[in-house]
Nucleic acid binder design. Structure first.
Lengths: 328, 328
DNA sequence: CGTTTCGATCGAAACGTTTCGATGCTATCG
DNA sequence: CGATAGCATCGAAACGTTTCGATCGAAACG
């Protein structure tokens, strides 16, 4: 009872309509047999499944389903250049959590290099700030009414925010150093951005006169270079506060290269609370709940897609003292 | 001449049909005015564009366009758990190149956690082996006739392969160590996989009796632990050959922690040729053209999508000697 | 001036689903 | 026994494009 063309040419892939015909039921019944949206008698379902198998039908065409449903099942995540965005383990940890939640909800995660034209159907977009401030696609996405979730970002209208308490974390770190007797403190910053501004404000609650070494990406080599040329310029401090553990690691490496002992001659603090197995000192750092942040982000995405109202989230951080800071 | 409902309820987003009506042209003409598929008089185009602007039409609905075209514009890339897959800079460098080429072609890159059910419309899928051998979605994708490009993978029917010359690289590395006088050589491996088997074969061309320390992921901590317990078990060698620079870095770190000098007491070699700024010794390694590999992969994807025949690719590697290896 | 060619426009047919509403039909209830 | 409910099934209408083929003038040609 196979369908006609055994001598077929470039066989068109079978559609649900073909399956329905083969099974001798209507298109809608065939659909229900698969989706389970409406009840179908066992016998009929059997027949439909058999027809599908015999025709080699591989399930509903996702393109058609998407159009019908008005959903693509894909969430975009805007990152800068991939290799720089994910070089920091903190970004990865968060991405991991996002992916896990989205995956469980049957959604895919699409990497959006920063300035990509978005000709793709996205159900929502996550914008993970990494020291960036502008976003080429923002206006376009707003115009298209795509739900937007911004992580650690500036206040853009129409977006949901997921953030951490940068200021409190930085302030706690400042107090820790102050308690240790440090007075000449310098800081290595990220590019101007919301998290950077908040953290600097927190640090200045304790050290109003903190010196800015310079700004660089969250990258070991970049941090080495930036702090290195600062030292080369004759500057110094008893403690350096960084904006990521990766930066801090760069400062530690560079300090040692120059014969400085950490924490004997120099205290170094980071931010994030990631694990850097290759660094033989445990960094004093502000631990942020990366997995929670990722999950909160993903949950916000799901809620926004579902059309629910979503409240912004600010997650707490905590200070973890390690061996990279000591008495001044 | 604005359309009717100024007091509209939950306004349905305007469609191209609305634009056409507003502009007083047919649907097909409106479509042509945007896509440029067929010539349209300047005056008409003007009118259509104006109508689109006045209605706030944001361009063709990607879902509908995709269904019509039979393309989704999305390419999947199968990775394991994201955080482990991208912890190695080598994976990132390659991903970066893939993304760049795909992006230029207007395609998006979707991260596929390994065992995800693929209910999404993918134009093609990249399977980047990272010591993995099986692939849950493989059968499904083949059944759906999705073009598959496998990087460094086993020979699966119907897929295009992008590979590097593992064996020659490993053999060159072996000869280098042999020339330095090493005879007691051990190797840290990846999980059993095509690249691992090839590399081990290459190494055995020079050291048939090479001892296997153990298998672990390309991760500093994992490498430290694996080689550490091997040493703890009383084993030793004058040189350790690793399957990635990250593994090699782990071995270097662990060796030093135990008071071994590299390369004085122990030579360590890696694979990949990535930059690890925090490691103060330049690794002897097999440099693989990561960006080329990524570009070749992306080009293969594009060609397969276009329905062209694509030949498998094997890229050459070269030995780079650094300060991590020395006389036995 | 009759014929051909070409450019601009239009109508209609896909693309392959999901889902709304309607239609019988068989049990259930009072 | 008539009214009501519930189940299985069906037909048809979306979803919003792109594109094929046809039509209609006007310009170009001999």
């Amino acid at each position: 009872m196979l369908s006609s063309d055994l001598v077929s040419g470039p066989t068109r892939a079978p559609t649900l309509a073909d399956v329905a015909t083969e099974a001798g039921v209507s298109l809608s019944t065939a659909s229900h047999a698969f989706s389970g949206t409406k009840p179908v008698s066992a016998a009929t379902r059997e027949r439909v499944l058999a027809a599908a198998a015999s025709l080699g039908w591989t399930g509903p065409n996702p393109l058609a389903r998407n159009l019908r449903r008005g959903r693509s099942g894909v969430v975009g995540i805007a990152v800068g250049r991939l290799s720089t965005a994910f070089r920091d383990p903190a970004a990865l940890a968060m991405l991991d959590a996002v992916s896990e939640v989205l995956d469980a909800a049957g959604l895919g995660l699409l990497l959006m290099p920063d300035d990509a034209e978005v000709g793709l159907p996205l159900d929502a977009v996550i914008y993970d700030i990494c020291g960036r401030e502008t976003w080429g696609a923002y206006a376009d996405l707003v115009a298209r009414d795509v739900p937007l979730v911004v992580v650690e970002g500036p206040a853009w209208p129409g977006t949901t925010f997921i953030d951490i308490d940068h200021r409190a974390g930085a302030a706690a770190l400042g107090r820790h150093l102050h308690d240790l007797g440090h007075r000449r403190v310098a800081t290595l910053t990220l590019e101007a951005s919301h998290p950077q501004r908040e953290r600097e404000a927190g640090l200045r609650e304790v050290f109003p006169e903190v010196e800015v070494i310079g700004a660089c990406a969250s990258d070991v080599a970049a941090a080495q270079e930036t702090v290195g040329s600062w030292w080369d310029g004759g500057s110094s401090a008893t403690a350096v506060v960084c904006q990521s553990d990766v930066q801090a690691a760069g400062v530690v490496v560079e300090a040692r290269r120059r014969g400085l002992d950490v924490p004997g001659d120099l205290s170094v603090a980071g931010f994030d609370g990631v694990v850097l197995p290759w660094l033989d000192v445990e960094l004093t750092t502000v631990v942020q709940p990366l997995a929670d942040k990722g999950r909160a982000t993903a949950r916000a995405v799901l809620a926004r897609i579902a059309g629910e109202d979503v409240e912004d989230v600010v997650l707490p951080v905590r200070l973890r003292t390690g061996g990279s800071t000591g008495p001044a």
